[in-house]
Simulated scan of single mutants.
Amino acid sequence: MKSMKIETWIFISCTIFLVLVTPAYYFVTSASDHGTDWTGTSALTMCTLLVAMVSFYLGFHAVTDPPRPEDLEDAEIADGAGELGFFPPYSWWPLWAALTLSVITFGGAMGAYWLMIIGGVLGALAVSGWIYEFYRGEHAH
């Protein structure tokens, strides 16, 4: 549990850093002759929120989960044996999801909203197939 707390504190320190840097960046850019840089300010704000989310997640699991074998000083190699989780085999669905996203983006860039609608429908099918690919066939539960 020791290293889980260390991981948590690393992300908490990054969150504190970003909480301090984001308003400083806003005030420094607003004092310039070109006006406030809203792109950088919003990017720093989103980074702050995302790192805070990871900090919260790691902090929650550091308290509630049992210690991992690699965190214990007296653990043996055999303590970490067993199933590590489910790792899916290759999948074609991410390719189709990416292609439909490119169709949506191309339709938006060309002003062809009908192409965006077609891409959205095909994208919904591709994402649904990606989500439910292990609920049928060889990998059915």
Rank of each mutant, 00 (worst) to 15 (best):
T15F: 10
G40E: 05
S13A: 15
I10L: 14
W114A: 15
D33P: 01
T36K: 15
Y25F: 13
P67R: 03
M4S: 11
Y25S: 01
F11Q: 08
D71N: 15
G35P: 06
F134R: 12
V19Y: 13
S13L: 13
P88W: 02
L18E: 05
L44D: 01
C47N: 11
E83S: 14
M46V: 13
G80T: 01
M110F: 00
A112C: 02
Y113S: 07
I16R: 06
E133Y: 07
I131D: 00
Y26Q: 09
T41H: 13
A112Q: 06
T48G: 09
W96N: 09
D74Y: 01
M46K: 12
A97D: 11
K2F: 14
T22G: 03
T29H: 05
F86D: 02
A81M: 09
Y25E: 04
V54S: 06
G40D: 00
D71C: 14
I131S: 04
S30D: 08
I12R: 10
S42V: 05
F27A: 09
A43F: 11
W92T: 08
D65S: 12
D33A: 11
F27D: 09
L58S: 02
T64I: 12
M53W: 13
Y25A: 01
A75G: 06
F86A: 08
F134G: 11
L115W: 00
I16V: 12
A78D: 12
H141V: 07
V103R: 07
T29C: 06
T64N: 07
